[in-house]
């Protein structure tokens, strides 16, 4: 589904990714762990299409040259990024934003858009599945949300948009156990034969709830080791410094 070959990226002449290779097949869950400044967030930015990077190498997503596509086109193809710091948009009702987003994607795919009632049904179901209080849906998007509420809102959006590839950029940082559980359930519910995940994290903690198929260690812009869940435990015990 996603194939990354020799990806290099720099920003303001500083090279951050230095030849990264990664393959994700449909249905797989991959975790990327690494110390600060190893290039984790850069990777998620580049996959989602954020501007400002000098890029070389190849990224293919379901036979598309991903690097040629605009941000929203990638979203239409089924790439979702759960932001590390979700943005606040004053005056825009969360429900309305979600509906606009879902229908923009459906429209781009030539599918039928949902009307207000169909959408409400969907959002009711998804939020109760994830035990997310409906009242946050009536507030302005992320405005005055706690850190946990913002992350839960990201997961709710993910479950409504049902993306093929979800990238979680340090979604677990700053979450308490309950919120962590909600995030994990969101992923586990979507997890299936088709939906793939790329989970970027500092800590092994989240991986106790979402058992990844593969764990990669990113350091200095390259994947230096790949293994299974055991690798995450080993990292947690030894620390990045000793491990590398």
């Amino acid at each position: 589904m996603l194939e990354i070959k020799n990806l290099k990226a720099s920003i303001e002449n500083k090279e951050i990714l230095k030849g990264l290779n990664l393959n994700i097949k449909a249905g797989e869950v991959h975790a990327i762990m690494g110390p600060n400044a190893s290039g984790k967030s850069t990777l998620s930015n580049i996959l989602s299409g954020k501007k400002g990077y000098e890029i070389s190498g190849e990224v293919r997503f379901e036979n598309n040259n991903l690097l040629k596509l605009g941000i929203e086109e990638r979203a239409h193809k089924g790439i979702f990024l759960a932001f590390q710091y979700p943005l606040e948009i004053p005056g825009v009702n969360t429900n309305n934003f979600l509906k606009t987003s879902l229908n923009a994607i459906k429209k781009a795919r030539g599918e039928k858009e949902l009307d207000a009632i169909e959408f409400l049904k969907l959002v009711k179901k998804k939020s109760s599945d994830l035990k997310i209080e409906e009242k946050i849906l009536n507030r302005h998007l992320n405005v005055g949300f706690s850190g946990g509420e913002k992350k839960k809102n990201e997961i709710l959006q993910m479950s409504i948009l049902n993306p093929k590839l979800s990238i979680l950029d340090e979604t677990d940082s700053g979450l308490d156990i309950d919120a962590l559980r909600i995030v994990s359930e969101g992923v586990n519910t979507l997890r299936g034969s088709k939906n793939s995940f790329l989970i970027i994290t500092h800590y092994q903690r989240l991986l106790n709830y979402i058992k990844p198929d593969y764990v990669h260690v990113l350091k200095n812009g390259k994947i230096i080791k790949t293994g299974n869940f055991e690798l995450a435990l080993e990292l947690e015990n030894k620390g990045y410094e000793n491990f590398l």
Partner: peptide, 24 residues
């Protein structure tokens, strides 16, 4: 970027943000 990542094109994203700004 956030709005576009959720599938909105630039113009719809601006319109959404500005309409939010003008809501009152």
């Amino acid at each position: 970027y956030y709005c576009q990542q959720r599938g909105l094109n630039t113009e719809d994203a601006i319109s959404l943000i500005v309409n939010g700004f003008c809501k009152e």
